[in-house]
Design a binder for these strands. Structure first.
Lengths: 240, 240
DNA sequence: CGAAGGATTGATTAGTCTCAACGCAAGTGG
DNA sequence: CCACTTGCGTTGAGACTAATCAATCCTTCG
């Protein structure tokens, strides 16, 4: 699990975690909601496999994707504290996830201060990512935004060991990229083509090949500091 | 303190809190940084008076304001878990704030599960606000975005009892509104004028008068659910 | 083979940005 | 106490990014 990368967890911690993860799992089909805005949250969701997303919909239907979740990501730490969801969670691909109830979750945090710390760390990184998205949409151009999204998802997959020959999964349609970056799918299409012409990436068959990561990061003004991989870098080397 | 509004805190809790808040306070002049991106965080900051803001700056200088903090807001719960700041904090007005060190903060959470819960609640609301901003910038028009910011800051001030005759503090320049909404100050200016003509607000002398809150909320597609005021509403009545 | 989802293209328009001034009020130094 | 500076708000003209609308083209899959 991704958490273990940040804090050294004891074998007992790992046992606790894997028990919590096995207790209750679910498979959600692509494009199906996991939980919807307005509903009362009962579980923290942990993605075990596949991509999920968080999104929000305005009263008139305009939709914004707020984040993507991959392998090992917790969706909403401690949500049960809140009375109702202010956003929705849905599956991008087919998703296998674990549901952790309030009791078990509390137990996890109480039993091990290391786990509690790791969960806080996870939460802080999640907010940091959200802030980076705000910045992206607010200040970056279309080209930069899309490049930034590519960088982020590439690096995050690097961390969980999902890069093969410089390419990673990227199961989003251009329309979904558009919803995530605050653009229209038409404009995403033209921009992605431009990026291909610039020889930075290839994108097809739900895979992203990054042909020149340094250049991609540079045009995206991508600074990975917000992912707070510092400890990992020291312990495991950046390539996970 | 704002936290007490969410969870019933005992008088002992309150004592603990006020001790933590008094131990170390600071006054920061307008436009001065409180802590800068890249620095190592040592304290959680709690705003006691004035407005502060969180912002991020891209390598080439473009700047995005990510949130505003008012009375009773915690700036970065548990930041010390992270090695370095991925954003900066600065004072908008003259700000009086409390600094809580790692030890004291941990003690607070350990001593009282109610406080711990309240802090988690605060954190969750903070992220929810960040998500709403992402949505705003990604999907709302300029007019809607500015209206939404007005609504949010109005309602948040309502909660801490800072509304007088339908008006509240609003110490931002139009340039700052622009940095927060992903617009230019020129466009903010024209849009605010339009909003005035529409008789929704008055904005001058660092005060915002909301002349027609229901209409303002409606044009902003403002749904206060993300502020998670539910408990408050039940316990204290919406007006704090 | 037909249907459907996604990618692509073209033409046009709208919303916002950019650049450049100008106005006004408050504060400051001589 | 007046001239000057400074910060902020306002205005205009023109440019440009990205949106909109409407097809068309692929590819996959039943």
């Amino acid at each position: 699990m991704r958490l273990s990368a940040f804090v050294h967890l004891t074998s007992e911690d790992r046992l606790l975690l894997s028990q919590a993860l096995e207790k209750r799992t679910r498979i959600v089909a692509p494009r199906q909601d996991i939980i919807r805005e307005g509903e009362e949250p009962h579980y923290v969701h942990v993605i075990l496999e596949g991509w999920a997303q968080r999104y929000k919909q305005l009263a008139d239907g305009r939709r914004q994707i707020l984040s993507f979740f991959i392998n090992g990501d917790l969706c909403d730490t401690n949500v049960f504290i809140l009375k109702e969801m202010d956003h929705s969670l849905s599956a991008v691909t087919s998703v296998r996830l674990a549901e952790i109830g309030q009791q078990e979750f509390q137990t996890l945090m109480d039993r091990s201060p290391r786990i509690a710390r790791a969960l806080w760390w996870h939460e802080l990184v999640t907010v940091a990512i959200q802030r980076e998205w705000t910045t992206s949409i607010g200040r970056r151009t279309a080209y930069e935004r899309i490049a930034h999204l590519f960088c982020e998802m590439y690096v995050r997959q690097q961390v969980v060991d999902m890069i093969e020959d410089g390419s990673c999964e990227f199961p989003l349609t251009q329309a979904e990229i558009a919803e995530a970056t605050g653009l229209t799918h038409v404009h995403v299409n033209r921009t992605v083509q431009e990026m291909r012409r610039d020889n930075l990436i290839e994108l097809r068959n739900k895979r992203l090949l990054v042909k020149d990561l340094p250049s991609l990061m540079s045009v995206a003004l991508f600074n990975p500091n917000y992912l707070h991989l510092d400890r990992r870098e020291r312990q495991l080397g950046f390539n996970g």
